[in-house]
Amino acid sequence: MTSSPAHRAATLRALHHPGDPLVLPNVWDAGSARAVVQAGFPAIATASAAVSQSLGYADGEGTPVGEMLAAVARITRAVEVPVTADLERGYRLSPAELVQRLLDAGAVGLNLEDSDPYDGNLVDPGAQAELLAGVRAAAEAAGVPIVINARTDVFLRGYGEPAGRLDEAIRRARRYLAAGADCVYPIMLADPADLRTFVEAVAAPVNVLAHPAAPAPAELAALGVARISYGPALYAATYAHTAELLTSVAAGDRLA
């Protein structure tokens, strides 16, 4: 890449506009990253599930951290736009090592989630805030204002009673923002009224997962969302299409 890491990080942060969201069709390798750029998208995001499955591992930090970061590095070498990496909960690395290895791979942003990938339980919000603050401090020490997308898994994991989940997600999001996160990601939150409440309550860039139960992108923009991710959906669709093609080949058909 020709631009500096600090410039790429600033560019990525500036793409987060509430009401005019950054759309990220998450990728898994250099080829998919190039396709996303060729389609006109201004930044690249990886999806841990897609990268893991493409490498033959399970999601949930099942991929050795070296292999995950090597995949991120292949992606960053293939494109000239900022790259943000889904690094689950940080692979139990110290914040300083996590940031250094992220930057060594050429990425300038990362997702960090607040559930334990090994047992699925939500971690204490204070512990997560401490992790995020450590990552922010390490980034400042490195001179690169990396973009931290703090994911809360309250809805994904079905934490607590349904009636209290929105308040819990807001409480966690505010704490993560105070610790140094740039964007918060209440993954699987899809109800339009609840999304509006969440966006207004946190008063910061909000990331939403695009999935069948979620509002359409235009409606998400109207709700004030600043970032829309597609997670492993693109990989899953590509895999399914490949399986269909292979069925045709096995039947003796020509590929169109």
Rank of each mutant, 00 (worst) to 15 (best):
M1G: 13
S3D: 15
P5Q: 11
A6H: 10
H7R: 14
R8A: 12
T11S: 04
R13C: 04
L15S: 08
H16C: 09
H17A: 03
G19K: 07
D20K: 06
P21T: 07
V23G: 03
N26C: 14
V27P: 11
G31Y: 00
A39L: 13
P42Q: 02
P42L: 08
A43T: 01
A43P: 03
I44L: 02
A45L: 07
S48V: 06
Q53S: 08
S54Q: 03
G60I: 00
V65Y: 11
E67S: 05
M68I: 05
V72Q: 11
V72D: 11
R77S: 12
A78M: 07
V79I: 10
E80Y: 03
V83R: 10
A85D: 01
D86Q: 09
L87F: 14
L93W: 09
A96S: 11
E97F: 04
L98A: 03
L98M: 10
V99Q: 06
R101A: 03
L110W: 13
L112A: 00
D114S: 01
P117H: 11
P125K: 07
Q128D: 02
A129N: 06
R136E: 09
R136L: 03
E140G: 07
A142C: 14
A142P: 15
G143M: 14
G143Y: 12
V147D: 05
V147R: 07
V147Y: 05
A150F: 00
T152A: 02
T152D: 04
D153M: 10
D153Q: 11
D153T: 05
V154G: 00
L156N: 00
A163R: 15
G164I: 06
R165C: 02
L166P: 01
R172W: 06
R172K: 05
A181V: 10
C183W: 00
C183R: 06
P186R: 01
I187M: 05
I187A: 01
A190R: 07
P192R: 08
E200S: 09
A201K: 05
A201M: 12
A203V: 00
A204Y: 01
P205V: 11
V206P: 01
A216P: 00
A218H: 13
E219A: 13
A221Q: 05
A222W: 03
A222H: 06
L223G: 02
A226G: 01
I228S: 04
I228W: 05
I228A: 08
Y230C: 08
L234M: 07
A236E: 12
A237Q: 06
A237C: 06
A237P: 02
T238S: 15
T238Q: 13
Y239R: 12
L245D: 02
L246M: 09
S248K: 12
A256Q: 14
